[in-house]
């Protein structure tokens, strides 16, 4: 008998195929909206420089302090910078910073969660109690503390995201590992003399992925908010960077005369956070196996 995959009528895709997840996300209105918003902002982040009508820090003194119009869709700020261009160009800044930060937090969270859950015992206690103590502090307070030590820089903001979110990701991963590690297929792998690396990443990790994807997208939305908040407080990314939080802070002083310079970046933060949140919620529903569209 020879192997011939194409003769098999039930050649189903693996349970976590990217295509079917997207399809299911678009099956519900809320998650479809969220996903669309997220993808639009990703597009903005990629093609921002092509779409923005003006340069990032281009100051047009003659047009300063203008209300939204045909030439300046979102108006101009105190220094004569085009708010529309800055909001568009800011998308790349905030999405890469929070995206990269979340990615690193997920990687370290997965590593700690897998090790902590699989080994258990004293090591698990040490790691988890340390993480508990980090979680006991409000995220923003912890972030301010860290930035006070590290100094305001892009890399510091990244480290803050990793430190603040690693414990949360690790907890989620650990809880799934605890339920999976006693399953027979993991014991079978141990009997077969599989390496620890293989057992953790090839046997256990796939079972963690659904919960992890939901948690990661949720963390991503909070990371966007955190980066914006730190920018607003002036301790994160420094001017003249087009960080939305920073822009809100700068516009705050002139809010009575130039409200548009505040509303548009603030609106961008709100929309992208809501969008990613809706998408995370949709992902959760996809994996919780609920019927779609009800």
């Amino acid at each position: 008998m020879t192997s011939n995959g194409s003769s098999l009528p039930t050649q189903l895709s693996p349970p976590s195929s990217r295509r079917s997840i997207l399809r299911e996300l678009f099956a519900r209105p809320a998650s479809a909206l969220g996903t669309t918003i997220f993808l639009l902002f990703v597009l903005l982040a990629i093609c921002g420089p092509l779409l923005a009508p003006y340069e990032l820090n281009q100051q047009i003194y003659s047009d300063a302090r203008q209300a939204p119009s045909a030439t300046h869709w979102f108006g101009t700020d105190n220094l004569g910078r085009d708010v529309f261009s800055r909001v568009i160009l800011g998308a790349r800044d905030i999405l890469t910073l929070s995206g990269l930060g979340t990615l690193l937090a997920v990687l370290s969270g997965v590593t700690f969660g897998l090790i902590s859950g699989y080994y258990g015992g004293l090591l698990d206690e040490l790691i988890m109690r340390f993480f508990d103590s980090l979680l006991a502090m409000p995220a923003l307070l912890l972030a301010l503390l860290l930035l006070g030590i590290l100094g305001p820089a892009v890399s510091s903001v990244m480290i803050v995201i990793v430190v603040v979110y690693t414990p949360i990701v690790a907890r989620v991963v650990r809880s799934v590992v605890l339920s999976v590690k006693t399953k027979a297929f993991v014991e079978a792998a141990r009997i077969q003399g599989e390496s620890l690396w293989r057992i953790l990443f090839r046997e256990i990790l796939p079972s963690v992925l659904p919960a992890l994807a939901v948690e990661a997208s949720l963390r991503f939305s909070y990371a966007i908010f955190l980066v914006a908040s730190l920018g607003f407080l002036g301790v994160g990314v420094q001017p003249p960077s087009p960080n939305w939080g920073l822009m809100v802070n700068e516009a705050r002083q002139h809010v009575s005369q130039l409200p548009w310079a505040l509303y548009f970046p603030a609106g961008a933060i709100a929309i992208v956070v809501i969008g990613v949140n809706l998408m995370a919620d949709g992902l959760k529903r996809v994996w919780q196996g609920g019927t779609v569209g009800k």
């Binding site: 349970p15 027979a184 297929f185 014991e187 077969q192 003399g193």
Partner: peptide, 27 residues
């Protein structure tokens, strides 16, 4: 060893071929 519950004995995320290949490669 053959486990009691076949539902849990195979990793749901690996194909039969991937599961069966392992002992040949590792052992």
């Amino acid at each position: 060893y053959v486990f009691q519950n076949p539902e849990e004995a195979l990793n749901p995320y690996l194909t039969v071929g991937e599961t069966l290949r392992r002992p040949f490669i590792t052992l």
